[in-house]
Design a protein around this nucleic acid. Sequence first.
RNA 1: GGUUCCUUGACCGAGAGGCUAGGUAGCGGUCUGCAAAACCGUCAACAGCAGUUCGAAUCUGCUAGGAACCUCCA
Length: 487
Amino acid sequence: MEHQLYIHNTLSRKKELFVPIKEPMVGMYVCGPTVYGDAHLGHARPAITFDILFRWLKYSGYKVRYVRNITDVGHLEHDADDGEDKIEKKARLEQLEPMEVVQHFTLRYHDAMKALNVLPPSIEPRASGHIPEQIEYARKILESGFAYESGGSVYFDVEKYNKHHRYGILSGRNIDDIVENTRSLDGQSEKRRSVDFALWKKASAEHIMRWHSEWSDGFPGWHLECSAMGQKYLGEKFDIHGGGMDLIFPHHECEIAQSVAAVGHQAVKYWIHNNMITINGQKMGKSLGNFITLEEFFTGSHKLLDSAYSPMTIRFFILQAHYRSTVDFSNEALIASQKGLSRLTEAYDRLQKITPSVTTSVETKDWATMCREAMNDDLNTPIVISHLFDAAKAINTVYDTKATISQADLDSLKKLFDTYIDILGLQTEQSSSKYLDSYKKAVDLLLSLRLEAKQSKNWALSDRIRDELASYGFVVKDTKEGFEWSL
RNA sequence: GGUUCCUUGACCGAGAGGCUAGGUAGCGGUCUGCAAAACCGUCAACAGCAGUUCGAAUCUGCUAGGAACCUCCA
């Protein structure tokens, strides 16, 4: 198999040629959400980024197993010593069973992802469903000597690990500095060093989410789930691990240490991280309280939003920036994306209606190759989109009967759009229910009547039809052949 | 304080030592009963300063401003 994809590996800080460990199989693990609140725009970024990678790898001929987890236990607020479990806190506030919270927000997350046309992963494991695996993983680390038990909890011994391996290779951190800076521990702590992190936490009396283990009744540490579940479903060594850049330290750094301690080597070949979405130049985040949920975008119900933005607009907006750059949210930028997207989808619709000629007089380029090269260059979706706009220009020119196109060129144009609309996951409205069909026919009928009115120069009637339809939200466009409309 | 990174035209956003990025907005035109759409043309940019080079937005240094991580965060 020919390898053409270059992808940026956080571990080396370089673009590397992607060569899977076991062709044609590709194993990909991506950190999913902690389900204690609605997904916001920031959550859409990794979901869409890795959705694109998932689609592109499949298109390139690989057999991909994509695992994206749901974190539903063990993710604490503040730090591992005094933080409360996020799920449990939400449950307490809402007077719900923790698993009710988990179920509720998992379903809402799925709805949002579906709206964004994010493909479901191959496996979507939950941390709470893999407690034995996590206990076993902690046990292995304990056996290898890189963890210690303290008061019913188990902690990873970062300082000891760092003597044999290097803690900090992913984030470029020098752990000696961290240890120096954080040596002041209050004597009460069970941890030897504040950099140590929990593999297993003993549950306090009032803690509801608890499982039995040889150390105590308790729950697993947050970093453990990804190591345990990733290697369970993808093997001891797998190709890709992804997530947001903010997870590099400590989460992914800890995962590397866990894997090296447990099985003797790193689990992941390519670490891939998407950048953040910012709002007024600042990271959008739950703890900063400056986030806008996806639902609020879809309905426009947030004070910073001038209007509602469709899921496809959001998706297109995100794809117009490279995944390793920050994207700054603004109404202006979203409106620009919205208009750009509709320009592209209109060109796609027109493409279906073009009748070919014997020869091609419109300027065409080898867009298929150009798009493939852009995708293979670290998933450069903004460049792919710019090529599609270029092709759209050609489509419009032909549609406007100002140039011609041959059957062969038309076919390759159709193939180009079909391919990349699919890879970028830009749905075109194809929902066709009985009601929708009848309604479309009714609008078509009205506009045919308007056309007749125009032909008999009854401007009053034709303008009335157009203006009234406009007041209901329809956009009517006259074309050489007749008319087009959209909502 | 430590580590990493960013600063591109009115706005968003690619690129990367010499070749028009693209989108949105603006301006002029073609088309049109009018409008919209479409098309054509057009404007305009690489934070500042100094250096390397035949040539720098792209490399180096400094200055200014901003961000992320170092605590939970996608």
